[in-house]
Design a protein around this nucleic acid. Structure first.
Lengths: 78, 78
DNA sequence: ATAAATTATACCTGATAGGGTATAGAATGG
DNA sequence: CCATTCTATACCCTATCAGGTATAATTTAT
C-alpha cells in the first residue's frame, strides 16, 4: 500500500520497538504512529519527518510507483 | 535548503508554469504552492502529493542529506 | 521609465490534524 | 491460561493548516 507506511513498519520491527516506544523516541503521539503505519494520507510532513529521522531518513520526492503511474489522470503528463 | 521545495521550483520552471498555473493544475491553493516552494515544514502530505503528482513523483522516505546527518541527535543512531 | 506579471506578506475564517484518553477485540508470546 | 502488543473505534480539545482576499514588493517585458 503506502510506501512510507510500509517503510516505517519494517524499520520499527527491525529495531524491535513497539509503536509506543517509537512514538516516545520520535516525540510524537501513539495515535500518530498508528495513523502513519496505517497509511493515513493527510499527515503533516514535519511529524512524519520526526519519525523518519530515527531511521536516518526524511521525506523527499521519489518517482511514482508503476501502478500509480498507470491509473493517473492522462492530462497530468501531457 | 529543503529538498522537496527546490524540486518543485525546478520542475515548475522547467514546465514554464507560474505558481498560479501550478496551483490550478494541482487543485491546491496559490498560497499553498508558495509555502511549499518556500520550504514550510508543516505542510500536509496529501496536498504536497497533489503537486508532486504533476511531475510523476510522490513523497517517500529518502536517506537524510549529509549535513542533516551530521548535526543530528547522537542518540538517534545509537 | 512604465506597465504588466509574478512573487511575497499579512489578516481572517472554516476545517481538521494531533494528542490524550477510554473501550473492545484480535494477535502474539510466555 | 494470562500478559503484552497491536488494531480499531469514539469523544473532546487545542493548535494550525489551507484557502481566500488584499496589499506590496520584486521581477520581467515593452
Amino acid at each position: 500500500m503506502k510506501g512510507v507506511a510500509i517503510f516505517v513498519v519494517q524499520r520499527r520491527k527491525a529495531l524491535k520497538l513497539t509503536q509506543q516506544q517509537l512514538a516516545d523516541k520520535a516525540g510524537v503521539g501513539l495515535r500518530f504512529v498508528r495513523e502513519l503505519e496505517g497509511g493515513k494520507p493527510t499527515l503533516r510532513m514535519d511529524k512524519v519527518n520526526d519519525v523518519l529521522r530515527l531511521f536516518g531518513c526524511e521525506l523527499g520526492a521519489v518517482p511514482m510507483s508503476r501502478k500509480e503511474v498507470d491509473d493517473q489522470d492522462p492530462r497530468t503528463d501531457a
